[in-house]
């Protein structure tokens, strides 16, 4: 399944509604980070999701137009959020699917990972340092009598 240009714009806006830019601006919204491509890759591998997303995007666009907006993406965040809540009543699989895959793509993105205080890299080969343990914390446990039965 390949989304057309209008569907891609709507999807980007839906993703920005689910994962908007943070208030302090340190994290971009999911649409702005280009997660449309991530979702399209998921759709390519998951045919079962294709009708869910296609009908959901169409419903979002239709709802926006019923409100007099030209397109879904022209609405403010709170209006877009209300539309997604409304259409999820009739399309219960839409938001769980997009939220799950949106979170996966978002929290793997190097720009987002950096905002969490991490280097944007896999764990191997550099690994992580952990400070020396304070084993004096075990003193009360060491002082206990044996805890097992013979």
């Amino acid at each position: 399944m390949s989304l057309g240009p209008e569907e891609q714009r709507t999807l980007a806006s839906v993703l920005d509604t689910i994962l908007p830019p943070s208030k302090q601006g340190q994290r971009a919204g999911a649409g702005g980070l280009g997660l449309v491509n991530h979702i399209q890759e998921v759709l390519a591998e998951s045919p079962i999701m294709q009708p869910i997303i296609a009908s959901g995007l169409a419903a979002a666009q239709a709802a926006a137009r019923r409100r007099g907006a030209g397109d879904f993406e022209t609405l403010p965040q709170d209006a877009r959020q209300r539309i997604l809540e409304e259409i999820s009543a009739e399309q219960p699989d839409l938001l769980p699917s997009l939220t799950f895959h949106g979170y996966v793509g978002y929290y793997q993105h190097p720009d987002v990972i950096q905002t969490l205080g991490l280097e944007p890299r896999p764990p191997h080969p550099k690994g992580y340092e952990i400070e020396e343990s304070d084993l004096s914390l075990l003193d009360p446990v060491r002082a206990r009598p044996k805890l097992y039965r013979e």
Binding site: T17, I18, L19, P20, Q77, D78, Q81, L95, T99, F100, G102, Y103, V104, Y106, Y107
Partner: peptide, 14 residues
Amino acid sequence: ALWGMSTGHLPWGV
């Protein structure tokens, strides 16, 4: 994120 989603401690949106 997925743990927050599954346990209801992580909303989507603003």
